Measured scan of single mutants.
Amino acid sequence: KLETFPLDVLVNTAAEDLPRGVDPSRKENHLSDEDFKAVFGMTRSAFANLPLWKQQNLKKEKGLF
Rank of each mutant, 00 (worst) to 15 (best):
A48S: 11
A14M: 10
D33V: 05
L2Q: 13
K54E: 14
A14S: 12
A15W: 13
L2A: 13
A38V: 12
G21A: 08
A46F: 09
P6F: 02
S45D: 14
D17E: 13
V9I: 13
P24T: 06
N57W: 12
P6V: 02
G41F: 05
D33E: 12
T4N: 07
F36T: 00
A15V: 14
P24Y: 03
A46Q: 14
M42K: 01
L58P: 00
E3K: 11
W53N: 08
V11M: 13
S45R: 12
H30P: 02
D35K: 02
P51W: 01
K62C: 08
L58I: 11
D23V: 06
E3I: 13
T43L: 08
F65E: 15
L50I: 05
F36G: 00
V22Y: 04
N29G: 09
A38S: 12
T4P: 07
E34Q: 10
K37S: 13
N57S: 14
E16T: 10
T13D: 06
G41T: 03
V11Q: 12
K27W: 05
A15T: 15
F47H: 00
N57L: 14
V9L: 13
W53S: 10
L7Y: 15
K62T: 07
M42P: 00
N57E: 15
K37Y: 15
L18E: 04
L58M: 12
A14E: 09
N12C: 14
R26I: 05
V22W: 03
L52Q: 10
S32N: 10
T43P: 09
R44H: 06
V22S: 03
G41W: 02
R44E: 02
K1H: 13
P19C: 06
L52G: 09
L7M: 10
P51F: 01
K37R: 13
E16P: 08
V11L: 14
F40W: 01
L10Q: 02
M42L: 06
V9K: 09
K59C: 06
L50G: 00
D8F: 09
L64W: 08
L18H: 04
L52W: 12
L10K: 02
K59Y: 06
E3V: 12
G21T: 09
F5K: 03
T43M: 06
R26Y: 11
G21Y: 08
E28H: 03
D35V: 09
S32D: 07
E61T: 09
A38E: 14
T13Q: 09
G41H: 10
D33C: 06
D8V: 09
A38M: 14
K27R: 15
L52I: 13
L2E: 08
K60H: 08
F47E: 00
F47L: 01
E34M: 09
E61D: 09
L58W: 04
G41A: 08
